[in-house]
Design a protein around this nucleic acid. Structure first.
Length: 278
DNA sequence: AAGGGCACCTGCGAGC
DNA sequence: TGCTCGCAGGTGCCCT
């Protein structure tokens, strides 16, 4: 479910509730998420204060007062819900980890498919973490430019461009939805080989990635306010999709006369307009 | 060595 | 109405 915008808005929502607060209590109800939860997670969270939160790729890094970092990935179906004391005592079906904060706020990590993961690591080891050290550019960083993308794609001779931009080693945070959206915006066909893109096309694509992610963050942020929503819909952003999930619908570039096509790449749905994307 | 495919799970909607 | 099937927004790892 969550791509970078959802993780970013979830983290912003969490920050409003958690930052500066003490974790008064925690409970883990299932250990078996994507990976087993770190040993003694609940006990190790208890009594710590939340110093600050940051995002790296689709990982949320929650810095605690003892120099540990609580690392959370939402997987496909994970979300944080603000709950009340009653639900803390009687959690819902997929509430796997629960937190009671010093300010009498309660949070549940709910994840039906259990593709989410958590870890607890030392702050100084973040950069070396197995799941973090291979990550590529942050798409919203200044360093992620068309030139940088072009150079990375030199090494991606045979890979279709859609798969290349979803490769977290190249650029992080672009999932299946925003890959289709960004390629449409840049006018590039999803099946093109990565290495076939010109510098100009790489520039258009890098800008398109930034644009679609930024727009989604704004949409999610505006609907988030002071509670943690993250049900994946990001407010009304789905209504703003140009191609994702719109097979058979007329392309919004009316003059092209095309309609949105659906195909499967590496087992995942891709949406595009064959008139507008070459 | 890079790239494709699979596996990990549950829920939901479409179709019969 | 109730079942089965296919599909879902992530990603590490195995196999070729």
């Amino acid at each position: 479910m969550p791509e970078l915008p959802e993780v970013e808005t979830t983290m912003q929502g969490l920050a409003k509730i958690m930052a500066g607060q003490k974790i008064a209590q925690a409970q883990c109800r299932r250990q078996d998420l994507r990976f087993p939860l770190p040993k003694g997670l609940a006990e190790r969270l208890k009594g710590k204060s939340v110093v600050r939160l940051e995002r790296r790729a689709k990982y949320m890094l929650i810095h605690l007062s003892d120099g540990l970092v609580w690392m959370v990935h939402l997987g496909m179906s994970g979300r944080f819900c603000k709950i009340d004391a009653a639900q803390y005592d009687q959690p819902q079906k997929h509430d796997h980890v629960l937190i009671a904060l010093g300010n009498r706020n309660f949070l549940a990590f709910n994840d039906p498919r259990r593709f989410g993961m958590m870890d607890l690591i030392k702050e100084k080891n973040i950069a070396d973490h197995k799941l973090l050290k291979h990550l590529g550019f942050e798409p919203l960083d200044k360093a992620f430019t068309g030139k940088a993308l072009y150079e990375k794609l030199r090494a991606k001779k045979q890979t279709a461009i859609k798969l290349a931009i979803m490769d977290q080693k190249l650029v992080v945070g672009v999932g299946n939805i925003y890959a289709s959206e960004a390629l449409y915006d840049a006018g590039i066909a999803p099946r093109r080989k990565g290495a076939s893109l010109s510098p100009k096309e790489c520039n258009a694509l890098a800008q398109a990635i930034k644009k679609v992610l930024h727009k989604a963050i704004i949409a999610g942020g505006s609907s988030l306010r002071d509670y943690v929503q993250s049900d994946g819909t990001l407010g009304n952003f789905q209504e703003q999709f140009s191609v994702y999930g719109k097979a058979g619908i007329a392309c919004k570039t009316k003059s092209c006369g095309g309609s949105i096509q659906k195909m499967v790449q590496a087992g995942r749905a891709s949406y595009y307009c064959k008139e507008c994307q070459a």
